[in-house]
Design a protein around this nucleic acid. Sequence first.
DNA 1: CGTGTTATTGATAGATCTCAAAGATGGTGG
DNA 2: CCACCATCTTTGAGATCTATCAATAACACG
Lengths: 236, 236
Amino acid sequence: MNTITRDIDLSLVEHLALFRGLEPAELQTVLSAARRYPIPIGEAIFHQDDEATTLFVLVGGRLKVTQVTADGQQVVVRFIGPKDMFGCVAVMGTSRYPGTATAIEDSLAIGWDSGTMSGLIERHPAIAMNALGTVGHRLQETQTRLRELATQKVERRIAHIVLRLARQSGKRVAKGVQIEFAISRQDIAELAGTTLHTASRVLASWEQQGLIEPGRRKIVIRKPHDLVAIAEELPS
Amino acid sequence: MNTITRDIDLSLVEHLALFRGLEPAELQTVLSAARRYPIPIGEAIFHQDDEATTLFVLVGGRLKVTQVTADGQQVVVRFIGPKDMFGCVAVMGTSRYPGTATAIEDSLAIGWDSGTMSGLIERHPAIAMNALGTVGHRLQETQTRLRELATQKVERRIAHIVLRLARQSGKRVAKGVQIEFAISRQDIAELAGTTLHTASRVLASWEQQGLIEPGRRKIVIRKPHDLVAIAEELPS
DNA sequence: CGTGTTATTGATAGATCTCAAAGATGGTGG
DNA sequence: CCACCATCTTTGAGATCTATCAATAACACG
């Protein structure tokens, strides 16, 4: 069954971090106020600088959030997987989306416009607290990346990124741990703040050492431990 | 009168972003629940990895937030000025402070422990919304820095940083705009993710061009417009 | 006037980007 | 089923930026 066409799994939704602590009755209200947003692969659910009117939660599929600078440089902000909240700036009053969210698989999101959201929060303040927790967490993660970018060499940064992706969306396979969505060298480069070429070289050298098994838009980590050693700059 | 000893200016506090939208009576409750925290210059109000128990608002003075990595590298996260909220992770449940906040001038903060804060938010959900707005704003700013660090050369990054500092804490003086607190080359380097040496060279070259007038732990911007040109990489 | 901190400057090495080209992969339509 | 095409990836060589190492200089403060 396709992600786009399948129905929202209510039991999944009621375990979302955003709504933790709500009574079943309250949950029902919240859910019935949601709208469904199918996003076919390659399409964007919103673009950078669009008016931020809606808060979303991804139900299925995968999105990539990117930012482009005035001079055309692109960076990958993050990947969004099922149960992740996004567009949270919308709940803090009128603002604009800071990036573009594009589906890299057929996806399904549910969303609430800011008016609905305000009403929900007024009745259920716990939602605001939960949102605060999520945004705070994201802030810390962004600061971690900032620190890595400021102090570490490319190879360590890429190691951190690959490990982080594996932690967030790693799937155990015969040969090790595989990132469970298609990710290009370009994406990795933009996450690490480097060029496609350098990222490719680094992965190639890891392959030679038997650390990973890279493929077209695919990475399998064979020796996670050794990758951690690189990330933490320990002697191998 | 010294910042440490002077009393809390209630009229100032009631215009804090965190408490916007509260009735005067509610404000009174909130304020009476606050504790005062004087911080002498050079002292830290909390250290990285301390249990985050308190949410603070700076009343007077100036703090510097830094992070150190496992391998001893330091980065400057941000500077905190009057009316700024900090330690906001405390309100999102038990966690640890992500950095160390050190006073670079004699300072005074007020704070609420997380228990008090939870109670306040339950009665006044608007506080959570306001906090969400502030944290969201900070997230965006951090992402901007991340993007700059990932895509720009050192000189542009330093230009952005100096301009941002001037915007946040610039004071008009005869010769231009001065950053109104003592900031060393090392601080600038750590903000820009570069070394003291490179930062020094960049500022020296700007001085030669008459763009700025640097001094010991001091910067006066003489030609803000030209600095913007560097930051945006426009032809001068 | 010493002393410690902060800042400047030069020389060098190394990492990473840029430019350039070619090779691999997988999907698509005939 | 195959050939073709767009996309993704690899690889080399050279240029450039920035860090590193090392030494000196300027400044503030007691």
